[in-house]
């Protein structure tokens, strides 16, 4: 018995050590060179047909970026400015010069997001979002950080598999999914993707996380 357990433990240890983890310092070297302090959240670039996705997703990035230790310009305040300056379409900036945001806001970096999927499936009980994140320097224009997340939130309710039970759970699932806001999936996507964003000045991890493991460029997950 002992031998079996030891063998199993060895196998687990070997398998987990096979994939040498990429460190954050190696994956995002520009973040450690430039050390941005202030981040402006750009209005999301919406590639889906759901027009509401842009406005609602826009504000969800504020809290997780603050918690990462950055100074983040309040999206509720910058939204008005972007609209006034007819800059509410971030498409024109994603590859262009960002110097203007340094000049007007004092931002060191701009966070772009591209919403590729934003959908609800009431029968199956699934909310799906797919978002690509690109953080670019306003000084050098280089990409400091980029990652994509495809997150599915499972809102299904299981009321039994046979006959009436199945019908009840199908209806309950549809109702629960319809009532769950898609923005919840957006928030979860931020949490998953930004988990390996190097920490900013106000975090106790600032300057200490370069040797931490970085995540994959594309992260896919289903959460309950």
């Amino acid at each position: 018995m002992k031998k079996i357990i030891l063998f199993a433990l060895t196998v687990v240890a070997l398998v987990s050590s096979c994939t040498t983890p990429m460190t954050m310092g190696k994956q995002y070297p520009a973040m450690y060179e430039e050390k941005p302090l202030t981040i402006a959240i750009m209005p999301p670039i919406n590639q889906t047909t759901h027009t509401e996705a842009k406005d609602y997703f826009y504000t969800t990035m504020y809290l997780p970026l603050c918690e990462k230790g950055y100074y983040v310009y309040s999206p509720y305040l910058t939204m008005e400015m972007f609209q006034q300056e007819s800059a509410y379409d971030a498409e024109q900036f994603i590859e262009g010069d960002l110097g203007i945001f340094q000049k007007i806001l004092g931002a060191d970096a701009a966070m772009f997001t591209i919403i590729k999927d934003w959908r609800r499936n009431n029968i199956g009980g699934l909310l799906t979002v797919d978002v690509e994140y690109v953080l670019r320097s306003t000084k050098t224009g280089q990409t400091l950080y980029s990652r994509e997340g495809k997150i599915t939130v499972d809102t299904s309710i299981n009321g039994g598999s046979s006959g009436l039970g199945a019908l009840v759970s199908m209806i309950a699932t549809a109702v629960n999914t319809a009532a769950t806001d898609k923005v919840i999936a957006g928030r979860k996507c931020n949490a998953f993707v930004l988990s390996d964003l190097p920490a900013g000045k106000y975090s106790s991890w600032y300057g200490k996380d370069a040797s931490n493991a970085a995540g994959k460029k594309m992260i896919k997950a289903t959460v309950k």
């Binding site: 603050c66 100074y71 310009y73 309040s74 305040l77 106000y202 106790s204």
Partner: peptide, 12 residues
């Protein structure tokens, strides 16, 4: 842990 108001909050 920081014990201060988050960035942007006084402004909002």
């Amino acid at each position: 842990t920081r014990g201060v108001v988050p960035p942007g909050m006084f402004a909002e």
